[in-house]
């Protein structure tokens, strides 16, 4: 069931195309990774979802209906460029932002109490923002993003400026929110966190969506038939048993056993490779190397750019 859909979104600034015909759809209760190099158009898309700017054409749907400005209260947005009023007290400020999202004063106070206790920062309530470290400010910003219990959460580079402990805490909270039914759009350059958190990704490059799908499928699609094999036996014999459709990428020998990275150029399944090796080596482990999101990102973007740069 889709919570959010963008259909054929186009946005042009003067002569620059920020988005050309981008469509994405986000399943309810999932974490959706919005990826892409700097300047690809991610932030523009996020701003369109938040109704900060309007698309030149295309549709933005929430639960199948065209999104209205009043729907903004159902979204929580943590922008990449974020900050707080420096001279304002934390509590006052959090209350103000929560009320701007449509909560009543008492509701805002109750929800904020919960989060401040949860993050163990109740003592900061009367402090001014300028007295807090950057990491502390980020915690407050996270709270103000989720305080109105939004159905759709949008995080743009949420972990920048966090130390590893707080990053972990935040990841845990994001997963908790998802488990409680929130739908999350997550934009980052940090590919390892994409792999940890996302169910589905879309990759935007040069204003176009060039990749879209569940993360496991995307990785499957972009594997290059590389296998990693640990074995006991003679490397020469192994090498002789392999025909020209295999390419040895790497070979290491050690006392405990040898390791081999092989690419199958024709793209046959691994069983054939195992059959060929069985007579000459004792296989201790065999697995197909699945590319990391980082590899996929680089490969897809570079291929695309190389293609489109051709005259």
């Amino acid at each position: 069931m889709e919570l959010f859909t963008a259909k054929n979104v186009v946005k042009v600034y003067g002569t620059t195309r920020a988005l050309s015909n981008v469509s994405i759809s986000v399943q309810r209760g999932s974490i959706f990774g919005l990826l892409g190099p700097n300047g690809a158009g991610k932030t523009t898309l996020i701003r369109i979802i938040n109704q900060i700017t309007a698309p030149d054409s295309g549709e933005i749907l929430l639960e199948g209906r065209r999104m209205k400005f009043s729907d903004i209260g159902r979204i929580g947005y943590l922008p990449e460029e974020r900050g707080l009023y420096k001279k304002m007290k934390i509590g006052e400020q959090a209350l103000y932002l929560a009320q701007l999202k449509g909560l009543s004063h008492s509701e805002a106070l109750r929800n904020l109490k919960y989060w401040f206790e949860k993050f163990d920062i109740g003592a900061w309530w009367e402090k001014k923002v300028e007295e807090l470290s950057k990491g502390m400010q980020q915690k407050v910003q996270f709270i103000t993003t989720v305080v109105h219990k939004p159905q759709l959460l949008i995080f743009d580079e949420p972990f920048s400026g966090f130390d590893p402990i707080n990053t972990n805490l935040l990841k845990q909270e994001i997963l908790n929110l998802r488990d409680q039914g929130a739908t999350i759009i997550f934009s980052t350059h940090n590919m390892s966190s994409v792999e940890e958190l996302c169910d589905h990704i879309a990759l935007i490059n040069r204003s176009k969506k060039i990749l879209d799908g569940p993360i496991t499928e995307v990785k499957e699609q972009h594997k290059s038939n590389i296998f990693e094999i640990s074995y006991r036996g003679n490397f020469d014999q192994v090498q002789r048993s392999l025909n020209h459709t295999y390419k040895i990428l790497e070979h290491t020998e050690s006392a405990s056993g040898n390791t081999l990275r092989i690419q199958h150029l024709a793209g046959h399944p691994g069983n054939e490779l195992i059959r060929g090796l069985l007579p000459v080596a004792e296989i201790t482990s065999f697995h197909e190397v699945i590319p990391s999101m980082n590899d996929v990102f680089i490969k897809v973007v570079e291929n695309y750019n190389a293609q489109s740069n051709k005259p």
């Binding site: 900050g83 009023y85 701007l100």
Partner: peptide
Amino acid sequence: MEEKKSRIVEVIISSVKP
């Protein structure tokens, strides 16, 4: 300028119209 400089403005205009 203060709102722009402190980067709070994007948070606010995701709640209200500019």
